[in-house]
Design a protein around this nucleic acid. Structure first.
Lengths: 230, 230
DNA sequence: CGGGTGGTTGATAATTCTCAATTGTTGTGG
DNA sequence: CCACAACAATTGAGAATTATCAACCACCCG
C-alpha cells in the first residue's frame, strides 16, 4: 500500500502542535485510483482558498492546518458550515461553481486535485464514485446535525456540543487549543461572540471545563455531556 | 398516537394501483439501470415510514403526496430537515441505519427499493454511483442553505424564504396550498407556530402575500424577494 | 350540531443581541 | 526586555427578538 508519505515535502512542518498527525492517510479518493495524485499547496492564515460563485476547478485535502467554509449574506452575516482538519477533503460538491467560500484558519498545507480529473475517475470507476458518494453522505450527515443544533438548541447546548465535537476531532483527549477565534465559533453556532464568551464563562463556572489563555480548554466531559443530553 | 385512527392497517397496497402515476419520471437512480424497479407502496397521512435508528432496509421515491424527514431531541424538540415531494428520493444516506424519521404529510404513494440492491447497483456501475453522488450533493447543498437560514436569518426572512421555496417546488405559480401544518413549518424553520403565524399575518399586512383559509397563499414575489434580499 | 384539531392573537417572560467599556494576548520595534 | 499597538476576549446594561402561556376563532368531519 502506498501510504502517501511524500506529501509534506512542502517545507516547514511547524512541529509545535500536538504529536498527532493522525490518519492523514485515509486518502479515500485515491483508493484504487493511484493515478490521482494531489499537488502540495499552501495557504497563509486567513487567506482565501476559493470564493463562493467561483468556478470549482480544484478539490482539496487538508494535510496540515485548518480550513473553514462559509456562506455570507449581502449584509455581511456569515454562517460557517464546516471546519476542515487534516485528513478532510473539501470543495468537492460537484457543480461548476463553489457554493461557499473556503479560507485557511491557520497556515495550511493541502493537496489539490483537479475536479475534472476526479469526476473522470468517478465516472470510470464505481469504486471511486462510491467513495465520493460516501463522503458526500458524511458531509450531509454533519450538515443535518448542524441543522438540528441551529434550529432547536440553546446557546449553552450549542457551545457544549461544539466543544465536544472539536475535542473528538482533535483526538478526544479532553484538552486542546481551539484552532479558531470566537468569531468563527459564533458564526458556526449561529450566535454572537459575546454570547459564546459568556457561555464559556458560565460553563467554566459550572465546572464543565477549565480555561487557560482564551483558546486552551480542558473539558469535564461527563458534565458537558449532561448539558447536551440527547 | 390518537390521530392514528383511520385505516392505518392498509399499508399494503394492491400492486398496480399506483404503478403508472404520471410524470413522476426523473427516476435518476434507474437511468441505465433497468433492473432496479421500485415496488409501489402507500402510507396514510401522519404515518411513520421509518424511524431514526432503524435499520435502513429501503430507499424511497415519492410518487404522490408528501413526506417530511426530521430529527428529535429526547425532550421532544424537533427539527425537520426536509420535505419530499413527488419525484424526490429519500432515505438513501448509505449507512446501516436511518439517521432521521420519515413520516407522510398526506396520504402518500412511494416506490420502494431495497437499499442493498441500490448499493449493489452502485458498486457495479459508475454511472449509478455518480447519480447517487449527485443526489447526495444536492441534498447537501439544501442542508447548507438551511444552515444559513437557521443560523443567520430573522423569523421574517425565514418565512418569506420558505414560501418562495415551496412555491418553486410546487410549480412556481405564486399561488398554492401549503401541504404542511404550522407545526411542520415551525419545526423546519426553527421557530414556534405562534411566530410563524404572526409572521404570515405581518407579511400579509405588508402586502407581500394574500391568504385564504389558513393554507392557501398567493405570493407577491417581488415583495417577498425584497424581504429576503441576499 | 358538537368535538377536535389547527390557526390566530394578545400579554408577558426568557433568551439572545447590541452597544459600550475594559481587560487580556500577541507580535514588533526601540 | 520593555513598551506599545493591534487585535481578541470578556463583561455589563439595556434593547430587541422570539418563546411561552393562554384565550379565542374557524373549520372540518362525523
Amino acid at each position: 500500500m502506498s501510504t502517501e508519505n511524500t506529501a509534506r515535502t512542502t517545507t516547514r512542518l511547524p512541529a509545535g502542535h500536538s504529536a498527532r498527525v493522525p490518519s492523514v492517510t485515509g486518502s479515500a479518493v485515491f483508493a484504487g485510483c493511484p493515478e490521482l495524485i494531489g499537488t502540495p499547496f499552501s495557504y497563509a492564515r486567513e487567506e482565501e482558498i476559493y470564493g463562493e460563485g467561483e468556478e470549482a476547478e480544484f478539490v482539496y485535502k487538508v494535510v496540515e492546518g485548518a480550513v473553514r467554509t462559509h456562506k455570507v449574506l449581502s449584509d455581511g452575516r456569515r454562517q460557517i458550515t464546516g471546519f476542515h482538519l487534516p485528513g478532510d477533503l473539501f470543495g468537492f460538491g460537484q457543480g461548476e461553481t463553489h457554493r461557499q467560500t473556503a479560507e485557511a484558519l491557520a497556515d495550511t498545507h493541502v493537496l489539490i486535485f483537479r475536479r475534472r480529473q476526479i469526476e473522470r475517475a468517478a465516472s470510470g470507476s464505481a469504486a471511486v464514485a462510491c467513495q465520493l458518494w460516501t463522503m458526500a453522505t458524511n458531509d450531509l450527515r454533519h450538515a443535518q446535525d448542524l441543522t438540528l443544533l441551529l434550529g432547536r438548541r440553546s446557546a449553552t447546548e450549542r457551545v457544549a456540543s461544539f466543544l465536544m465535537e472539536v475535542d473528538e476531532r482533535l483526538g478526544a483527549t479532553g484538552t486542546f487549543t481551539l484552532p479558531m477565534t470566537r468569531r468563527d465559533i459564533a458564526d458556526y453556532l449561529g450566535l454572537t461572540i459575546e454570547t459564546v464568551s459568556r457561555t464559556l464563562s458560565q460553563l467554566e463556572e459550572e465546572g464543565a471545563l477549565l480555561r487557560a489563555g482564551g483558546r486552551q480548554v480542558s473539558l469535564r466531559r461527563a458534565r458537558l455531556r449532561r448539558v447536551v443530553e440527547d
